[in-house]
């Protein structure tokens, strides 16, 4: 356990405040840890995944005797020490060669984990193509029906989304989107394996650079790294249900945001082809009966009020007759 320190100067106070929980969270820091043995493949894969994750990535250059599925205490310690909430642990053993474990933390405790085995790896350097700028936001593409239905793959999607997708943005400069991380599934393996859930389809993780021509057509070019992954052990987030419940809590929407239309579907507001915001306003039924127009003699009175009118008329008639004289 770390000591709780009381800040002694303004700088350390600011640093501590930056670590405090916030309503709207920033990007998640990821730590890349090597296990007791990592082969060349795992090393390179981690290096290139880190290149994609930069600048929100921390590399642990030394080997560490860490086994996330047996004991996650060191991960929890590192998470607290480095203010990180994602881990990629590389480990290669005889039983599970070329393994990468994605770990997601909540409040410095392990929320869920997913181990994948690297079955094929093509480095970034294998493609002599332009690479994306570090720190640019990738587009994400998930292809495969199981991402919606199978809990293991739904978890993988959620993990990768947390890893690459980062915090939700309010706005983005679209021409600055340079690359896409595409995660696709191989066709489902034979049916006998599918029902017991041990044999899951292979996952292809590809990264491409995106270029768009004038007409808005997108063209992709391979950027690397290319990874073919096989799903292995995992800890579902439901295993830590109490943590998950806390992690899924959303802040209450502020009154101002509700008025702006955030959080709720904006109704009767649309953007036309020119990019202008157009709103439709609904008016109630118009009641012209109660309308007060200019008082005119011709409008005044109807046939029913003839009695009154005659009384009023009389003096004027007299006047007129006099003038006529």
């Amino acid at each position: 356990m770390l000591r709780t320190v009381k800040p002694k100067n303004a700088r350390s106070k600011r640093a501590l405040e930056a670590r405090e929980p916030k309503e709207v969270e920033g990007p998640r820091q990821a730590i890349f840890v090597k296990g007791t043995h990592t082969g060349e493949i795992v090393n390179n894969a981690m290096k290139e995944l880190m290149a994609l994750k930069r600048p929100d990535a921390i590399s642990f250059s030394k080997k560490n005797p860490v086994h996330p599925f047996e004991d996650a205490s060191s991960l929890e310690f590192w998470a607290q020490k480095n203010d990180a909430s994602l881990f990629v642990v590389g480990q290669s053993t005889k039983k599970r060669p070329h393994g990468l474990t994605f770990v997601r933390m909540f409040d410095c405790k392990v929320l869920d984990m997913c181990e994948v085995g690297i079955e094929a790896f093509v480095s970034m350097h294998a493609f002599k193509t332009p690479k994306s700028t570090p720190g640019h936001r990738p587009l994400l593409h998930f292809a495969g029906e199981l991402f919606d239905t199978h809990p293991r793959l739904a978890q993988l999607k959620s993990l990768l989304l947390a890893f690459f997708g980062g915090p939700a943005l309010e706005s983005i400069h679209v021409p600055g989107l340079e690359h896409v991380v595409s995660v696709s599934l191989a066709p489902a393996p034979p049916a006998r394996a599918a029902d017991d859930g041990t044999l899951l389809p292979r996952v292809h993780l590809r990264t491409y650079t995106v270029t768009r021509d004038r007409a808005g057509r997108a063209a992709l070019a391979p950027m690397g790294p290319f990874l073919d992954l096989a799903l292995r052990r995992h800890v579902p987030p439901e295993a830590n249900a109490h943590l998950l419940a806390l992690a899924m809590k959303r802040p209450k929407l502020k009154k101002q945001d509700v008025q702006k239309g955030l959080g709720k579907r904006r109704r009767n507001v649309e953007v036309d082809e020119m990019g202008d915001v157009r709103g439709r306003v609904h008016l109630g039924k118009q009641e012209l009966g109660g309308l007060r127009g200019k008082r005119m003699k011709a409008l005044r009175g109807g046939p029913g009020e003839s009695g009154e009118e005659s009384e009023e008329e009389r003096p004027r008639e007299r006047k007129r007759s006099r003038s006529g004289d």
């Binding site: 495969g144 029906e145 983005i172």
Partner: peptide
């Protein structure tokens, strides 16, 4: 919001 597209068509 997350710049994400999910293709749920079978392979």
């Amino acid at each position: 919001g997350y710049l994400t597209v999910t293709d749920l068509n079978p392979v």
